[in-house]
C-alpha cells in the first residue's frame, strides 16, 4: 500500500512524531511504500538540525533524517509553517526539503492513505 504521513506536532512535547516514526519504519519493513512525509504546524520542528537532546534520549530529527535518506523518502516541511517558526534551509535537517501545502494536497490525492499524527 502507498502511505503518506502528515505530522502536525512538535518533537518531545508530544508523542505524535514518535508514533509516526514507528509507523513509517514498520510500514517500510513490511514492504509498503511511503510516498511522502509532510511536516505541518509545530511538526516542522521535527526537521530542525539544531536540536541537541541528551545522549540517553532519542534524537528525533537525526532519526528521521536517517530513515528518510535510507529509504529515499520525499520529506517536506511546509514553507508557511516553517517560516513562522524560524525553520529555514540553513537549519533544516538532512533529507527534508521546504515546499508548499500543494505538496500535501498531492500526497492526499496520490497515496492510498494519508495518515495524520497529532491531536
Amino acid at each position: 500500500m502507498k502511505f503518506a504521513v502528515l505530522i502536525i506536532e512538535g518533537p518531545y512535547q508530544h508523542q505524535a512524531s514518535d508514533s509516526a516514526y514507528h509507523f513509517t519504519h514498520a510500514a517500510l519493513k513490511k514492504g509498503h511504500e511511503i510516498t511522502g512525509i509532510f511536516f505541518y504546524n509545530d511538526g516542522v520542528y521535527n526537521a530542525t538540525s539544531l536540536m541537541t537532546p541528551p545522549q540517553d534520549d532519542r534524537h528525533i530529527s537525526k532519526r528521521w533524517s536517517e530513515l528518510i535518506q535510507q529509504y529515499k523518502i520525499d520529506s517536506i516541511a511546509c514553507v508557511a509553517a516553517a517560516k513562522r517558526r524560524g525553520i529555514t534551509e540553513s537549519n533544516l535537517a538532512a533529507g527534508t526539503r521546504i515546499s508548499g501545502l500543494g505538496q500535501l494536497t498531492e500526497l492526499g490525492i496520490n497515496a492510498d492513505r494519508l495518515i495524520t499524527f497529532g491531536d
Binding site: 500543494g102 500535501l104 494536497t105
Partner: peptide
C-alpha cells in the same frame, strides 16, 4: 490548508 488546496 483549505485555501491552498482549493486551487487543486
Amino acid at each position: 490548508v483549505i485555501l491552498i488546496m482549493a486551487a487543486y
